[in-house]
Amino acid sequence: MQIFVKTATGKTITLEVEPSDTIENVKAKIQDKEGIPPDQQRLAFAGKQLEDGRTLSDYNIQKESTLHLALR
């Protein structure tokens, strides 16, 4: 499925993911596309910060959802 990640600079990244993917996997995909190390990424959805060990389906993130990326 496709999801979107909006960066602090307003850029939107499109990612191909599975509901079973962990947040860690998603951060690795962002690193592949943007070169941002996962340990510098903070992802949020619906106002909640997402934890590495959880999956997209844990957070009820569905196709075409938009996550927000902040850098630490």
Rank of each mutant, 00 (worst) to 15 (best):
M1Y: 15
S20N: 10
T12C: 03
G47H: 06
T66R: 05
I23L: 08
V17Y: 07
E16F: 08
R54K: 14
A70G: 08
I30A: 01
S20C: 04
G35N: 06
Q31P: 01
V5F: 03
G47R: 06
L15V: 05
R72D: 15
V5G: 01
K6S: 06
K6R: 12
D21N: 11
L71F: 06
K63M: 13
I13Y: 11
Q40P: 03
E16R: 08
L50Q: 01
L71P: 06
K27L: 04
D52K: 04
S65M: 08
D39N: 08
D52W: 05
I3L: 11
E24D: 07
I36H: 14
A70F: 07
V26R: 00
R42S: 14
K11E: 07
Q41A: 03
T7M: 04
L50E: 00
K33N: 11
D32C: 04
K33P: 02
L67F: 05
T9W: 05
Q2R: 05
G10Q: 05
E34P: 01
L43K: 00
L69T: 02
P19G: 09
I13G: 01
G47L: 05
I13L: 11
N60W: 10
E34F: 14
Q62D: 11
I61P: 01
P37T: 07
A44K: 07
A46T: 07
A44R: 14
G47A: 08
L56T: 02
D58K: 04
Q49P: 12
K48R: 10
H68C: 04
K11I: 13
R42F: 11
P37V: 12
P38I: 08
K63S: 13
T22S: 15
D58W: 11
K29Q: 09
Q40N: 13
T7I: 10
N25D: 08
P37L: 12
R42P: 02
A8Y: 07
L67S: 01
D58N: 05
S65W: 07
I23R: 01
D58A: 13
T55H: 07
D32A: 14
A8T: 08
D21Q: 07
E16P: 06
L71T: 11
V5N: 00
G47C: 03
I13P: 00
P37F: 07
S57M: 15
K6V: 13
V26Q: 00
T55K: 09
G35D: 15
V5S: 01
T66W: 13
Q40I: 05
H68Q: 15
E34G: 05
K63G: 08
M1R: 02
L69N: 01
Q62G: 05
S20H: 11
K33A: 13
Q40M: 09
A46H: 08
T12H: 08
Y59L: 14
S57G: 12
S65F: 07
F45K: 03
E18D: 09
E24V: 13
I30D: 00
E64G: 06
D39L: 07
G53R: 13
L56R: 00
D21K: 02
P38S: 10
R42T: 06
K63Y: 11
T9D: 15
Y59H: 04
L15E: 00
E64P: 03
G47P: 01
L69I: 10
T14M: 14
K11A: 12
V17F: 07
N25K: 04
Q40T: 15
Q31T: 10
V26D: 00
I3F: 01
A28K: 05
L50V: 05
K63L: 11
